[in-house]
Simulated assay, not measured.
Amino acid sequence: MRALFYVLSAFAVIGLAVWAYDQNHRTQQAISEARELRREIRSLREALSVQRAEWAYLNRPERLRALAEMNFARLGLMPLVSSQFGQIDEVAYPGTVAPQEGSL
């Protein structure tokens, strides 16, 4: 009986060792993937900051004004003035009925 207990205990220890090794391997793999993802996120953030800087550089008002002036004949762009904007009460919202004159 004692020999059977020793054999079962040995198998239990071996099984636990295999399980612990597997868990360790999975943990190391997850840590490695997390490091790779962090590295990729860092490089994407750097690329995004470069693109934001380029966007800001290309959208400088003086540059856009010069481009609009150079291409005026082809594009026909005019400067914006405040009279080109509407009022909020002029916007027709779908599903609403416009108020009638004299109601309320």
Rank of each mutant, 00 (worst) to 15 (best):
R63Q: 11
A98V: 15
A17L: 10
L77E: 03
Y57T: 12
V97R: 08
G15F: 06
A47S: 06
N71K: 07
L64S: 04
I41K: 09
V91P: 05
V81C: 10
A68F: 00
E46Q: 13
F11A: 02
A17T: 13
R65N: 08
L77W: 06
S82C: 06
R26I: 14
A66T: 08
R26E: 12
N59P: 13
R45Q: 14
L75N: 08
L77K: 07
E36Q: 08
E54C: 07
Q51M: 07
E62G: 00
G86F: 06
Q87H: 02
I41Q: 13
W55E: 13
A47L: 02
F85M: 04
L37N: 08
G76W: 00
S83G: 02
R38N: 11
L77M: 06
R63C: 04
I31E: 12
E46G: 11
A47K: 07
D89W: 14
G76M: 01
G76D: 00
I41T: 09
S82W: 05
I41L: 11
N59G: 12
Y57P: 04
Q23R: 10
R45G: 02
P99F: 04
F72R: 07
Q84D: 07
A66M: 07
V91Y: 09
V91N: 11
Q28E: 14
S49V: 10
S9T: 00
L67S: 00
L37S: 05
Q29R: 15
T27H: 14
H25P: 00
E33S: 09
Q28L: 14
L44V: 02
E36T: 09
P61M: 01
Q87P: 04
I88A: 10
L80N: 04
L58I: 10
L77P: 02
S43K: 12
Y21N: 10
I41G: 05
A30E: 03
L58K: 15
L8C: 03
T96K: 15
L77F: 06
L75A: 13
R52C: 13
F11D: 00
F85Y: 12
V7M: 15
